[in-house]
Design a protein around this nucleic acid. Structure first.
Length: 128
DNA sequence: GGGGTGACTGCAG
DNA sequence: CCTGCAGCCACCC
């Protein structure tokens, strides 16, 4: 396999392993963190051929819209949904509420909360 | 070299 | 909120 792809995969596995339990992020985010923006589709391939699927929290990587990327009828879909729910991530209609479970990754601007502070509804938002 | 293929995305309607 | 669609890019015939 190409050297380029090997390096890419290493980066992907590293970053996926950084996602905290109970949180999720998107293929595109992982691609960007790995240093390969616009390679979201390849992140999925890397995960599919990951040698360490047993220990890698691959289930925490979903679509940018919060939806599980597998076909809803597939076993893969059912498994991912199950794994996520086991760690406390609610999956409704095949999708996750990124506002609640989205991982605040290193590249994400952290003044998003500050701008929202003007409305002052953080706590209520989270605890309902 | 050319065409098909996704565990993708962002945006229009 | 949901669907469609063009753009995306390394891999594999």
């Amino acid at each position: 396999m190409s050297e380029r792809m090997e390096h890419f995969k290493k980066q992907v596995y590293y970053w996926v392993a950084q996602i905290p339990e109970g949180k999720v992020t998107s293929y595109g985010t992982i691609a960007k963190l790995a240093g390969f923006p616009r390679h979201a589709r390849h992140v999925s391939k890397a995960l599919g051929s990951a040698p360490n699927r047993k220990t890698l929290p691959w289930q925490r990587v979903i679509g940018a819209d919060g939806k599980i990327a597998f076909n809803p009828d597939s076993d893969h879909f059912a498994l991912q949904q199950s794994l996520l729910q086991q760690e406390g991530v609610a999956v409704l209609k095949g999708k996750v509420d990124l506002k609640l479970y989205g991982w605040k990754h290193p590249l994400q601007s952290d003044n998003e909360n500050e701008s929202k502070n003007n409305k002052g509804i953080q706590a209520e938002d989270f605890f309902r």
